[in-house]
Design a protein around this nucleic acid. Structure first.
Lengths: 173, 173
DNA sequence: TATAATTGTTATGGACCATATCAAATATCG
DNA sequence: CGATATTTGATATGGTCCATAACAATTATA
């Protein structure tokens, strides 16, 4: 299969260069070739993560919860009575950076710091009633708007397989 | 190494609370329950992404290339003769933030900005010889150290399935 | 030709992440 | 017991990445 006879090497491959791209006279700007980039797991992983977070924020707009805040509420609900260091470290948040995050949640009356009676250095974390209520609504939003859309896109089985592989990477890589 | 056998059992449920966790007398700090967090795709996705980037940086330590820098080199190699706006935007990098990134690569003589003769506003991007050589070595490192480890962890078929699903999310979500 | 749009760039502010340091409280050990 | 070390929450600070506004030079458009 001989492709073309005259214009074989004569320029106009998608990215030729400084002398001859005429978008003005021509048509579209000719999309770039991603090439090996689309095979790089790190690249695709990052882009997918950004999309998922973006969608998460949209779904949670009415509750004004970021992914990090949501994860804190979830973890405190599941582990009431733990202190800041424990909650922060299992989320991979450094203690200094956890302070402002908690200040925010506490100022919105979603969770509370309680001085521990055992160890008066530490602050025990608990959800307030409002925090529990907001979290319940957040869970519903995530399930119906966020995760549902992922299921729709990938299918239930694929979504679970994806979760399993990502967990493996997160834990064993 | 005398193991005290008296305080073996403490009858504490994992998250009991402010009245009675005695790590001092007891054993381990009792790991927290992730609960629904481990089912949140966004959470697992983010953690996996961090792990993958971290490993990428380790593999590239000898070449001092970040994921972003590597992606720029890959894209410029595949699309020589494009300007900054085109390269940056297909990578999701805003033009202002792309300047410093390019300054870095250019100062290391990995790529070059060339004033276009068509449009003297734009800078055409090309890899230098050194840039091509470094990128070739980088590709080898990524293939043998980075992606190989992922294949080892997931298996070839699963790795490809993972890539496919992430691409779907990145593009269609 | 006058006006609008584009390109690379600078300046700037916000969000997130990491380290050092501190006071208060507790643990450890002589 | 008491001196020292460690832990906890907190502050200060710096780095990186991300986003917006603005600008000069250049090009496109009305």
């Amino acid at each position: 299969m001989t492709v073309s006879k005259t214009a074989e090497k004569s320029s106009e491959k998608p990215g030729d260069a400084a002398k001859g791209r005429k978008d003005a006279t021509d048509g579209q700007p000719e999309a770039l070739q991603l090439g090996e980039l689309s095979e790089q797991l790190g690249y695709v992983l990052k882009r997918a993560q950004l999309k998922v977070f973006e969608n998460f924020l949209r779904c949670m707009a009415s509750l004004q919860l970021t992914p990090a805040q949501f994860s804190v509420l979830l973890l405190v609900e599941k582990n009431p009575g733990r202190n800041q260091t424990e909650i922060a470290s299992t989320l991979g948040i450094l203690r200094p950076n956890f302070v402002a995050l908690l200040d925010n949640l506490e100022s919105r009356d979603l969770c509370a710091r309680i001085r521990s009676t055992n160890d008066r250095r530490s602050h025990i974390l608990v959800l307030t009633d409002k925090g529990k209520a907001v979290l319940a609504r957040a869970k519903k939003l995530v399930a119906t708007k966020h995760e549902a859309r992922l299921n729709e896109l990938l299918g239930q089985a694929n979504r679970e397989a994806l979760l399993g592989m990502l967990s493996k990477i997160a834990n064993e890589f």
